[in-house]
């Protein structure tokens, strides 16, 4: 047997790695759902979740194939194709509720309304973004989480400019057909994990990442967060999770481009 390679688990756990497992945990318990991460750290998180505690998740190559196995971000998917999901099949799966997406909003508010469409007045925006894309349909059909790599007051706003992803208050006002399948799970940021586990579904500080204070999160949030007693720290990766992140899923360290060490 050759010498055991030096496990980089001896290195200090970085904020990026805390974020990876916080994203991975979003898909915990989902079973045979299509995990759709947007962004590098959510992508590492989804692959980590499937490689460890959530083995039945479905993952795509980012184009049109369901792919089995675990592979590195920034590299082509392995050949282990297990299904075909052209965009039309993605819509079918969305409307069937068999997906959990993690999107990257430019603005999000206390009830989870999220904006990816435009900043300012919709009819003459100061900055045109992508458009609402699939966010309206995603949010009213299947579980949705969000990833915000820079937790700032300009992202966590009192009211978003264009409601693209539907929040709990908007769904309630719209009616039962909008609220029926609305299921906003968590918002992972560079500072904390937030959820909507409150009586009125207003955003709650679920955990702060190690080294981050509750006040720091509050100061960077443009609305009043629910803080429910003592806020626990976000969990750290296990040794096996760290090994998978560092050696298998992100050996090139692309996660550090989203969250610098």
């Amino acid at each position: 047997m050759t010498a055991t390679p030096t496990l980089p688990t001896t290195g200090e756990v970085t904020r990026a790695e805390i974020c990876v497992v916080a994203c991975a945990d979003a898909w915990r318990g989902d079973g045979e759902l299509f995990a759709s991460p947007m962004g590098t750290i959510p992508t590492i998180g989804a692959r980590l979740a499937r490689a460890t505690f959530e083995p039945e998740l479905l993952l795509s190559d980012g184009e049109s194939l369901f792919v089995d196995g675990t592979w590195a971000v920034g590299t082509p998917a392995p050949a282990a194709v297990e299904g075909w999901i052209p965009y039309r099949a993605v819509f079918d799966l969305v409307w069937a509720g068999r997906r959990h997406v993690m999107m990257g909003p430019s603005q999000i508010d206390r009830y989870g309304n999220a904006n990816i469409s435009a900043i300012g007045d919709f009819f003459k925006p100061t900055r045109q973004l992508l458009g609402v894309r699939g966010a309206p349909g995603n949010t009213v059909n299947h579980p949705t989480s969000y990833w915000v790599p820079r937790h700032l007051p300009r992202t966590f706003v009192p009211a978003v400019d264009v409601v693209s992803g539907v929040g709990y208050d908007s769904a309630r006002i719209s009616g039962s057909a909008a609220a029926r399948f609305l299921d906003l799970r968590r918002v992972v940021t560079n500072l904390a994990v937030l959820d909507f586990a409150t009586a009125d579904h207003s955003m709650r500080l679920a955990s702060v990442h190690p080294g981050v204070s509750v006040d720091e999160v509050r100061d960077n949030t443009g609305f009043e967060l629910v803080v429910d007693g003592a806020v626990p720290p976000t969990r750290t990766p296990t040794d096996e999770e760290l090994r998978l992140i560092r050696e298998v899923i992100d050996p090139k360290g692309l996660r550090l481009k989203e969250i610098p060490a």
Binding site: F123, V132, V140, S164, G175, A177
Partner: peptide
């Protein structure tokens, strides 16, 4: 008919 769009600003704009 669609569920997609309900509750979002697609209905407003």
């Amino acid at each position: 008919p669609a569920r997609a769009g309900l509750g979002s600003d697609v209905m407003r704009v």
